[in-house]
Each structure stands twice: as structure tokens, then as C-alpha cells.
Design a protein around this nucleic acid. Structure first.
Length: 949
RNA sequence: GCGGAUGUGGUGAAAUUGGCAGACACGCCAGACUUAGGAUCUGGUGCCGCGAGGCUUGGGGGUUCGAGUCCCUCCAUCCGCACCA
């Protein structure tokens, strides 16, 4: 019987689910291993062949670890709240819960075809009230916590209240700088709403009237990481800054810990670097410049600088156009110019601002600041290159040492003070931090790092500023004006927000219970005044105790802790039992794309740290090792339509000849002007050759299409690698591949395609090679008449060598995620065994186990045919023995140090002992040895040597 | 501009520590079997050259007995960030 993957795969899938082979227990004497995929958002389009790449890799690793004797947790679930389902609801009125459920069912169907070893009894869905009950609970913990900078950890807010009432807030600096100090007496005298307003400035989840990204197109606020290039990540709608009352997570308090702990993680450098960039820590000084002349005494300009050493190079000051001081200091003469400039900045969209970074604009305010050391008068400008949201929104500009300041000075003809001697050439700023300073008073002749320290000390002594560390990281917006998300467990009384578990809140008991479930709505349209759809449901909003919060939580809320829920998914009394989290600990291996570098992966890290600080779990990093899989791209095909006759399609190579026949003289240059390039569905194309009859039937408008063909009668299409998407007609559905070749072939081929972390286009043709390999493997065990061929004969040395080499190589390859070369090694092994006509039990049985992670269905079939009970996954992974892998080439060295055997006067059948003798007498070699005896003489594949002295 | 990564046949790629570059597979060529082949099997296939032989890991330089691998430099591509003071 030939390899019948259809019936084999069907049969073993049933066996696995009937016997719950993949069910994982929380108590086991085996060592644990937690391997997790980033759970998908179940979109309406279903899976294409690119999606399972990471899932297959993690599944192979999970199965391998199980063979290695680990208790492996390998779950799957769905990130089920999200915008697309709600947008779809807006268009169709279909409830997001319904679409989401349908999409999940389809995802599950597709995933099941591929044969994953997920423990589906642990499935989580973030939109399930039993799940988001705990998302809401964690939110309440965040609300009830503050960050103690002294102890560097989150603590219960109750402990902060105790501190306030006994000693005020002197010892606990407030993250929000506008909070003045108060004494215990003052605190105790405050009314409830005053106390709660102050506490809000400490809470890790807090309500604040602050600037947020508002996206009109989506009708909601977005977090920083959801805004890309000045437009919304989803939908690409423009965004604007807007002040709104919003919930935030105080992630900035964790900036240092998030940064430092990166060093302990086994993540790619690129990934860590992205997080470092996003956190954006920089250290320097913050200092004040007083104003000169008429403005003296009317406040000061506070700046942040990373280069306090360049203080004597300050040529001018720049404020952000929105800076609050601008109106105060602008002189009457400059008032009109400043107003115009501010209006111009206001008129520019975020997008324009970003795309025209190089453009230099600005306006002089007429005011001057005073240099704190030299007393010099420094002109004060405003410019959009200074951002209101970073540092203090104002800078001291040092044109000799900063490229932007330099360009600005040149553009507006502001004198440049050279403090770098010869290293500044007048053409470009010298921004290296090397060498000594000049023209800098007490900093002269000091090396830059020393000068920076000296300057900071001087600034502190003068009392005009301090050493300061700044971060780019902003607190994360946590409110969305949407329906399809977790409702906040928050009720307002007298304008004060309370979580429903607070004793101070007077509400009926039934309103205290979690989850606060999402109510049914008639319309998914936004509520009044930029509120979410929930605001329209009076009955739900207005409880007897007061109005509810009508925003919902953002998409990242549910995904920030889901890895914990898998450990104990059915727990009704805790987010996860302590015994379960203590047993499973961190995710040992997390597999997913790079697109979550600064969103999900940062928020998850923060939530984990908070839960750790509050004593709920025993680890403070969620993902020990992270592997990023690349994308599988689509290979699109195009036809060329003649612009002057839209029914005529010209084959790729015939275009120039065709244009010439139409009298176009510079035909080569005119290609783009005369042809439209249209995507054509890849199912209508074989390689590059278009199936003309199918093409005519594809769309009615092509029914009467005419063609200019190649001499051999074919229509040749153009090809391009693009993202796989429906609109590009280049989607390959894994269902089709599995139907044609089987899941095992599909799995192995995805791995064979190349290294797991690089992107590559899908090419269906190459799959034949892998399929052929599985058929060859099958034939080692079973002949055409379905006879079991495996014998008990003694294996030969060659056969043993082949097996042990394969055990060693594939084991090592799997450990380092080089699944492509592991597959290659299997192919080599099977080719060799086929050539040797080897059907020996002692060789073939370990091979079944080796191949089980890659081709699980086939492996089970062979395992059972060879007389075993139970799953192959419970067999031990075979060990290799070095003695079978010995290098034969060691016996035949032919050259040393580039010298041939003849030159060394060695006999033609020289062994390595001969060569060793030659080494010891060779003059050149003696020279390197410097009279010492060689410690080790290494022969490499019989050609050259390396001598270790 | 800054940061990270990557450059190897017609294609996807191997080469784990500096040690026979191109494994394995696709594609292509030739052959066998076949009524047929989009089945199966065998052989060939980096480039130049009839050949002996020469050349070859983006370009240039360096270290080394020996470099795809290490160092310097330039170039190209991809990803991320982007007026972050």
C-alpha cells in the first residue's frame, strides 16, 4: 500500500482526541516546560499558510520536549476582543460575539487539520466573561496599588494612606509633579474627594484629564503603540492629540525595571533594542534659565539636556510652539510673527509633521534668557522641532554640538559658539562625546564625560537645576470608546470613581460581583460627547449607586496576562491558583511575530511585575525565551492590460515588440505608461504561465479578453513578492495544501522552507520534495502490498552510523530551532537507508521517534504498526553513541600547513602518526612552537592541521 | 539620520568552534520504465574553459599556515525608531 496520508491522519487525530493524549496535568513528577504561541485574533479571513509557521515550530518543540521527558504545557486560545469584529458590527448589525464565535470555530477547524498537540481543555477566550472577570480583577489590583520608588515595587494603596496619615507625603514622591507636599495633619483634614484626587496621582491605574491620541475614524482613543506614522495602526485613520478624561496605566514607574530586566531575557537583540528604544532612557541635567530685560522675574525657562558639558556652547533657546511661556515672553514686535507661526504649526497634521522632519521652521520671540554662568543674553526662539511632550518642552540649543541646532542656527543665521576647537569645522556639528572642551570657562581642557559631571555639580551648587533622567516612555492609555471590550468595574459617586469592591462605596451587593458583564446594545454607534456605545444604555449606565464607567478596556488588557490563565483556566475563585502558577512559572518559550515588540510584550511584562510585587505570583518576567518567526509572504502574479484597449492582455516578454508594432518608438521607457498591471488569482497561473481559459471565466469583464502570446503560445505573467492578502489574490489556504499532501507534509515543508526567523515567500512547488521524502520513509517500513518490512537483522556499521548521526544532528538542530536542517538530515538519512535497502528494526524504530515531532500522524501509524501501544510521544527520545559517528578521515591526512604529503616526504599511505612525526620535525612548525611541545595536533578532514601550543 | 539584522548557484538554502564552500530540496538537462506522465527510478547540474586547468560566498583592504565565518572600510537590501534635546 502506498503512503495513504488521508486515512492515516484522520485516524490518528481521532485517536488523540478520544484518548486525550494532549491533556496536561498540573501535578507531575516530571520537570515542567511551558511553551506558548501568541494567541491569534480570530479574523474573518481565516488562516493562510503563513499563520501556522510559528505554531508548527512550537508544536515540534513541544513534542520534542515531551519525548525528552518533560511535562509540557502547550495551550492555545483566542484574543477575542478587538476592533474588526466591532467595525463589522457597525456595518452589518451582527453582534461581535456572534462573528467572533463563528471565526473561532473556523480557526479551530483549520488548526485541527494541521495536527497540533494543544491541550484544548485549557482554551481561553478573552471575551468570555469567565475570563474577563479576572482581567477586571487585575485592573482593580492596579487601581488599588501605588509604586514605592524607595522599595522599587508596587504596594497596596492602603499602605500609602497609612503613610499619609502619619507623616504626610514627604517620603513618598508623587509621580505627578504638580502634587505639592502635605503634612499628616493636612492629609487628615482633607475631604474624601481631595484625598481621592491625591491618591489618584499615585495609583498604577488612574483616571486623568490628559492628552491622548484621538482617532476620529475609529471613534476612539488609542495607545501610543497603536499609532504608527501619525495614523491609526488599524484602518490607517488620522489621529490628533486631544485632552480627555481617560484611564491610564502608570507603566512609566516600571521603566527602569523593564529596562534592566531585558538583560536577563533570552530574546533577540533586535527585540530588546526595540524595547530599549521605546523606553528611551537618557540621563543628563534639568536646569533653569532666567529671563533677561523686561521679562526678568517673570518665570524661567526650564530645559533638559543630555549634554550639560556643552553649557558654554549655548547659542539660543528653543521652546515648543505650544509651550505655556510663549505668550508671556513674546515681545510686542514679535507678537504677530509668533501668532502666525503658532497658527501654522496648529494647521499641520501629525502626518505632515512627521514626513517633513527635515524642514527647518521657527520664529524668534524677541525675548532673551540669561546664561547662568557667563551672564550672556541668549535669544529665545520657538520651533516645532522641539516637542512639547518630551523633557520640559524647551531646550538649550548648542549648534556646535548638535546637528539639529546646527541646522537651525545656519538657517536663521544665529552665531555659533565653538567649544570643540579643531574638531568643529564650521560645516557640521561635532556630536561625538570625545576630546576636551575649549571656550568653556571652568570646563576648559576637561574631557567631555568629566566636564559633564563638573557641569552638573556646578548647576546643583548654583541651585538652578539637578541631575535628571528622562524617558520617552509614556503612561499607557487604558480607555477605549468602544463596545467590544472589557467593561470597567467602576462606578462614580459624586464624580469620584470607585472600583466596585471598595468598602467606601455604598452599593447593593449584587453590583459588587465580578464580572461586570457587557450589556446588549441596539447600536454600536458612539455615545454622546466622544463617549463609547455603552453610554447609550441608560439602564446599564445608571445604577442605583451611581453611573458606571462607559469606556471599555483596550485590546491589550486581556492579552497582558492570558499566559497565566492557561495554568489554571477553570478557576472560579482566583485568576490562577498559586499552586498552578508556582508549578508552571514563566513561559519557557514564547513564539510569535515581531509586531508586538512594544505593545503586548511590554504590557505583559508590566502586569507580571505588578502581580509579582503584590505577592500573587512568584516570578516577575513572563517570557524567559522569545522566538520570533518570520512572515510567509505571498507570491503575486500580474497580467498586463493594454491601456488603449482594455480587453487586450500582452504577455510579459511581448510588451516591447507589441508597443513597437503600435508605433511607440521608445517602447522600453513607455512600458509603464501603456500597461496596467493587474493582480491575477494565483490559482489561474501555473508557474508564470496563465491558464487562459480559466482566466476568461474568472471575471465577466475578462470573458472576451484577447491576448498577445509568447512564440510558444503561452501567456507569461509578472511575479512579485508581497504580503499575503485576499485583495492581492495571492492567498494560499493551508486547508488546500493539507487536502492535497497531508498535514505531515505541510508541517515539514513549512519548516524546510528556511530558518524560522526569516521571512520568505510561499512556493507551493517545492512541497513535492518533502512529500516524496515521506513516501520514501513509508516504503522503508511498508511495501506496496502493505506488508510490514521491518526485520530483526543485525544492522551494519554503516547503518548504525547513519542513524546515530541523525539522532545527534536532529537533536541539536531542534534545540537551536534549526528545523530546516533537521528536515534535511532526515532526508539524507532516508536516502542512505533506501540505498542500503535497510529495513532493520534496530535502525528504523528510533527513526520513528525522531520524526514524530515533525510528522506526528505518520509516526503514530508506524509506531503502532510496529507493535506498540500508546502514543509515540511517551517513548523516550533516543540517545546517540559517539562511537558510531567516528570520523574516518582522521586516518588519511594529506597535507600539513599547506604542505602536501610529498613535500613532507610522507609515504602515500601515511597515517596520522606519520604526520605527527612530520609536524615535530618540520622547521616552520617548529618555529611556531617556540620550542614548546604541542598540546594538541588537530586533523581536520584529512587536509590541514591546527596546533595548540 | 539613529538602532538592529542580512548579503553564498537559476531558486529556497547548508556549512553549530576559523578547517574539502554550495549539504538537502526546488528547477533544469539526459536516461530507464511506461499507451501515457504532473507517477516512479538512475545520472548530471556554481561560473569560465574542448581540455588540462582557472575563478568563486556584495566590493575593497587586513589578521592567519588557513577566512563565507574574525577586524577595518565602502555598497546594497530588509526591519524598527524617527526633530527624544
Amino acid at each position: 500500500m502506498e503512503y495513504d496520508f488521508q486515512s492515516i491522519e484522520q485516524q490518528w487525530k481521532k485517536y488523540w482526541s478520544d484518548r486525550e493524549i494532549y491533556k496536561v496535568n498540573n501535578d507531575s513528577r516530571k520537570p515542567k516546560f511551558y511553551i506558548l504561541d501568541m494567541f491569534p485574533y480570530p479574523s474573518g479571513a481565516g488562516l493562510h499558510v503563513g499563520h501556522p509557521l510559528g505554531y508548527i515550530a512550537s508544536d515540534i518543540y513541544a513534542r520534542y520536549k515531551r519525548l525528552k521527558g518533560y511535562n509540557v504545557l502547550h495551550p492555545m486560545g483566542y484574543d477575542a476582543f478587538g476592533l474588526p469584529a466591532e467595525q463589522y458590527a457597525l456595518e452589518t448589525g451582527q453582534h461581535p460575539a456572534v462573528t467572533t464565535k463563528e471565526n473561532i470555530a473556523r480557526y479551530r477547524q483549520q488548526l485541527d487539520k494541521i495536527g497540533f498537540s494543544y491541550d484544548w481543555s485549557r482554551e481561553v477566550r478573552t471575551s468570555d466573561p469567565k475570563y474577563y472577570k479576572w482581567t477586571q480583577w487585575i485592573f482593580m489590583q492596579l487601581f488599588h496599588s501605588w509604586y514605592d520608588r524607595g522599595q522599587q515595587k508596587a504596594r497596596p494603596i492602603q499602605e500609602l494612606i497609612t503613610i499619609f496619615s502619619s507623616e504626610g507625603n514627604q517620603s513618598v514622591p508623587c509621580p505627578e509633579e504638580d502634587q505639592p507636599a502635605f503634612s499628616a495633619a493636612a492629609w487628615n483634614g482633607y475631604a474624601v474627594h481631595e484625598q481621592r484626587t491625591i491618591l489618584m496621582k499615585y495609583r498604577l491605574a488612574y483616571l486623568s484629564h490628559a492628552e491622548v491620541w484621538w482617532c476620529e475614524g475609529l471613534g476612539t482613543v488609542l495607545a501610543n503603540d497603536e499609532v504608527v506614522n501619525g495614523v491609526s495602526e488599524r484602518g490607517g485613520f488620522p489621529v490628533v492629540k486631544k485632552k480627555m478624561n481617560q484611564w491610564f496605566l502608570r507603566i512609566t514607574e516600571y521603566a527602569d525595571r523593564l529596562l534592566d530586566a531585558l538583560n536577563t531575557l533570552d530574546w533577540s537583540d533586535a527585540m530588546k533594542e526595540m524595547q530599549r528604544n521605546w523606553i528611551g532612557k537618557s540621563s543628563g541635567a534639568q536646569l533653569r534659565f532666567t529671563l533677561a530685560g523686561a521679562h526678568a522675574g517673570k518665570g524661567y525657562i526650564e530645559v533638559f539636556t543630555t549634554r550639560p558639558d556643552t553649557i558654554f556652547g549655548v547659542g539660543f533657546m528653543v521652546l515648543a510652539p505650544e509651550h505655556e511661556l510663549v505668550q508671556t515672553i513674546t515681545t510686542p514686535e514679535q507678537q504677530q510673527a509668533v501668532n502666525q507661526y503658532q497658527a501654522y504649526v496648529q494647521s499641520r497634521s501629525e502626518r505632515e509633521r512627521m514626513s517633513e522632519v527635515k524642514q527647518i521652521t521657527g520664529c524668534f520671540t524677541g525675548a532673551y534668557a540669561v546664561h547662568p554662568f557667563s551672564g550672556a543674553q541668549i535669544p529665545v526662539w520657538i520651533s516645532e522641532y522641539v516637542l512639547a511632550g518630551y523633557g520640559t518642552g524647551a531646550i538649550m540649543a548648542v549648534p556646535a554640538g548638535d546637528d539639529r541646532d546646527h541646522a537651525f542656527a545656519k538657517h536663521f543665521d544665529i552665531p555659533i559658539i565653538n567649544i570643540f576647537g579643531d574638531r568643529y569645522n564650521g560645516e557640521a556639528a561635532y556630536s561625538d562625546k570625545q576630546g576636551t572642551l575649549s571656550n568653556s570657562d571652568f570646563l576648559d581642557h576637561l574631557e567631555i564625560p568629566v566636564a559633564a559631571e563638573t557641569a552638573i555639580k556646578a548647576i546643583e551648587e548654583l541651585g538652578i537645576g539637578t541631575r535628571k533622567i528622562n524617558y520617552k516612555l509614556r503612561d499607557a492609555g487604558f480607555s477605549r470608546q468602544r463596545y467590544w471590550g472589557e467593561p470597567f468595574p467602576v462606578i462614580y459617586q459624586e464624580g469620584i470613581p470607585y472600583t466596585i469592591d471598595e468598602p467606601g462605596l455604598k452599593i447593593p451587593d449584587e453590583l459588587r460581583a465580578l464580572p461586570v458583564t457587557l450589556p446588549e446594545v441596539d447600536s454600536y454607534h458612539p455615545g454622546p460627547e466622544g463617549q463609547g456605545p455603552l453610554a447609550n444604555i441608560n439602564k446599564w449606565v445608571n445604577t442605583p449607586a451611581g453611573p458606571r464607567e462607559t469606556n471599555t478596556m483596550p485590546g491589550y488588557a486581556g492579552s497582558s496576562w492570558y499566559f497565566l490563565r492557561y495554568m489554571d483556566p477553570h478557576n472560579d475563585t482566583e485568576f490562577a491558583g498559586r499552586a498552578a502558577t508556582d508549578y508552571w512559572q514563566q513561559v519557557d518559550l514564547y513564539v510569535g511575530g515581531t509586531e508586538h515588540a512594544v505593545g503586548h510584550l511590554l504590557y505583559s511584562r508590566m502586569w507580571t511585575k505588578v502581580l509579582y510585587d503584590l505577592g500573587h505570583i512568584s516570578f516577575d518576567e513572563p517570557f524567559k525565551k522569545l522566538v520570533n518567526q518570520g512572515m510567509i509572504q505571498g507570491s503575486s502574479r500580474f497580467v498586463y492590460r493594454y491601456k488603449h484597449n482594455r480587453g487586450l492582455f500582452v504577455s510579459q516578454e511581448q510588451r516591447i515588440t507589441f508597443l513597437e508594432s503600435q508605433g511607440v518608438r521608445t517602447a522600453k521607457q513607455a512600458l509603464e505608461d501603456n500597461f496596467d498591471k493587474l493582480h491575477v488569482d494565483i490559482s489561474l497561473v501555473d508557474g508564470l504561465a496563465l491558464n487562459i481559459e480559466d482566466f476568461k471565466k474568472w471575471k465577466p469583464e475578462f470573458a472576451a479578453a484577447q491576448f498577445v502570446l509568447e512564440p510558444d503560445g503561452q501567456y507569461i505573467c509578472a511575479a512579485e513578492v508581497e504580503k499575503m492578502s485576499k485583495s492581492k489574490f495571492n492567498v494560499v489556504n493551508p486547508d488546500d495544501i493539507v487536502a492535497q499532501y497531508g498535514a505531515d507534509t505541510f508541517r515539514m515543508y513549512e519548516m524546510f522552507l528556511g530558518p524560522i526567523d526569516v521571512s520568505k515567500p510561499w512556493d507551493t512547488k517545492g512541497i513535492e520534495g518533502v512529500h516524496r521524502f515521506l513516501k520514501k520513509l513509508w516504503r522503508l517500513y511498508v511495501d506496496a502490498e502493505s506488508n510490514w518490512l521491518v526485520t530483526r537483522d543485525e544492522p551494519s556499521a554503516e547503518e548504525l552510523r547513519c542513524l546515530h548521526k541523525t539522532i545527534k544532528k536532529t537533536g541539536e538542530d531542534i534545540e537551536r530551532f534549526a528545523f530546516n536542517t533537521a528536515v534535511s538530515q532526515f532526508m539524507i538519512c532516508v536516502n542512505e537507508l533506501t540505498a542500503l535497502k535497510c529495513h532493520k528494526h534496530e535502525i528504523l524504530e528510533p527513526l520513528i521517534i525522531l520524526i514524530a515531532p515533525f510528522a506526528p500522524h505518520l509516526a503514530e501509524e508506524l509506531w503502532h504498526r510496529s507493535g506498540h501501544e500508546g502514543s509515540v510521544l511517551d517513548a523516550p527520545f533516543p540517545a546517540y553513541e559517539e562511537k558510531y559517528i567516528a570520523e574516518q578521515s582522521k586516518k588519511y591526512p594529506v597535507a600539513i600547513n599547506g604542505k602536501t604529503r610529498a613535500e613532507l616526504e610522507l609515504p602515500t599511505d601515511a597515517t596520522h602518526e606519520h604526520v605527527e612525526q612530520a609536524v615535530l620535525t618540520d622547521a616552520t612548525v617548529q618555529k611556531w612552537l617556540e620550542g614548546k611541545a604541542p598540546k594538541k595536533v588537530i586533523y581536520v578532514k584529512g587536509r590541514m592541521i591546527n596546533i595548540v601550543v
